[in-house]
């Protein structure tokens, strides 16, 4: 797949579709409070969009969109956002992952709502980065036997 000559139609269609998938994915992440969806589903969709471009353009060109060396650090950053939200609650005097202690808003319930949003963003980032990095590693790792 790496040394693959891209078919113009396939390449055009995937490049056109990919941004829309990503937009829908962002909608899924940020609208997870009101409808089915959330960080994991949205993150997987973004990863699918990125992988779609990789499939159609060949991995080397697609590095410009999402470099293969970003996967591991970005994935850790996503988990760190989640973890940090929980840890911040500890530093503000609550239990681990007690979003009410974060005082993000006047009401405890609104604070929890924002806390959930933060956490979902972390989940989305982590899942995107890690799924793309698994794909990259499977495709390119130990290329020659």
């Amino acid at each position: 797949m790496k040394t693959h000559r891209s078919n113009p139609i396939v390449s055009l269609v995937s490049r056109m579709v990919s941004p829309f998938i990503m937009m829908f994915a962002l909608y899924v992440i940020f609208h997870g409070h009101y409808s089915p969806g959330g960080g994991f589903q949205g993150g997987t969709l973004i990863a699918a969009a990125i992988i779609l471009v990789r499939l159609s353009e060949g991995s080397d060109t697609a590095q410009l969109q999402f470099s293969r060396s970003w996967g591991t650090p970005l994935g850790s950053l996503g988990v760190l956002i989640y973890f940090g939200t929980g840890l911040a609650a500890v530093f503000m005097g609550g239990r681990f992952l007690d979003y009410a202690a974060l005082h993000l808003a006047h009401h405890a319930s609104m604070s929890r709502s924002y806390g959930i949003l933060l956490v979902e963003i972390g989940v989305g980032l982590a899942v995107t980065a890690i799924l793309v990095s698994i794909y990259d590693n499977l495709l390119e790792g130990e290329a020659d036997a």
Binding site: H33, G38, V79, F96, L97
Partner: peptide, 20 residues
């Protein structure tokens, strides 16, 4: 949690440690 989707609330808040 001021959130309509119960699954999201359980996932991220009540049982947030599982999701971590």
């Amino acid at each position: 949690a001021h959130t309509n989707n119960m699954v999201t609330v359980i996932l991220a808040d009540y049982r947030g440690y599982d999701t971590l």
